[in-house]
């Protein structure tokens, strides 16, 4: 589904990603771990095609097409969606307007705003004065309308209370799993692939995960089973990870 080869990315005149190789298969959930500032958000932004990220070398392919030079909207139309950690305020543009346009005529998401606890938010300027949890729910409502085939989730559960995590977890689950396949909430077959950044791994309780990568200083240090890596990070911290890789090399 997504194949990244030797990706080098500059942001603000500085090389941030220094040769990333990463693959996400159809229907897979892959996790990105890594300390703050390692370049995880930059990688997601580069996949979405944001202008702040300049690809200097390497390629990104999606569904077999080279998307390295595509515009953001072209990528979105191909089926990539993103939940940003800190989306910008857009004064004058209402959340409802975005959800409406993203839904391309299907207004089921907008009607379900209440299920995202976003009553009264559709008429508000998007992200302006939204709390941390409101931003997450608004991002998920937009993505639900958009129906992407592959989602980039940047710390979907960070900075929100436990109750909100439950709601976010359920909504991310609905986004990834085909509700018709095995009944709502119980589906086993994922129809949407994703790349998820998480520090705590809490979101994985809701959506499961198939593979994981650890990033540091713009490089992928190792990959493995998500729960194994998470356990190592929890017990030994990222410092050990580096050593482990050194040994391997």
């Amino acid at each position: 589904m997504l194949e990244i080869k030797d990706l080098h990315v500059e942001a603000g005149e500085k090389e941030i990603l220094k040769g990333i190789n990463l693959t996400v298969k159809e229907g897979e959930t892959c996790v990105l771990f890594g300390p703050n500032g390692s370049g995880k958000s930059t990688l997601l932004a580069a996949i979405m095609g944001y202008g702040t990220c300049k690809v200097t070398k390497g390629t990104i392919a999606f569904k077999g097409q080279d998307i390295t030079n595509m515009t953001v909207d072209q990528r979105a139309k191909l089926g990539i969606g993103m939940m940003m950690q800190r989306p910008p305020n857009v004064v004058g543009v209402k959340l409802g307007d975005i959800v409406k346009v993203a839904g391309k005529g299907d207004d089921s998401a907008i009607k379900n705003a209440a299920k995202f606890k976003l009553n009264g938010f559709l008429e508000r300027d998007v992200n302006v004065g939204f709390s941390g949890g409101e931003i997450k729910r608004s991002e998920l409502l937009q993505l639900t309308a958009q129906k992407p085939e592959f989602v980039l989730l940047d710390e979907p559960e960070s900075g929100v209370d436990l109750e909100t995590i439950d709601l976010i977890g359920a909504k991310v689950h609905d986004l990834l799993y085909d509700p018709k396949a095995c009944g709502v909430g119980n589906a086993v077959k994922r129809h949407v692939a994703s790349l998820v950044i998480t520090h705590t791994g809490q979101i994985l309780d809701y959506i499961g995960a198939d593979c994981a990568y650890i990033m540091r200083d713009g490089l992928i240090l190792c990959s493995g089973r998500p729960m194994d890596l998470l356990k190592d990070i929890r017990e030994k911290g990222y410092g050990e990870c580096v050593k482990c890789r050194m040994v391997k090399m």
Partner: peptide
């Protein structure tokens, strides 16, 4: 770009 990421030209 934020709006474009929702499929808007």
């Amino acid at each position: 770009e934020y709006l474009m990421s929702r499929g808007i030209s």
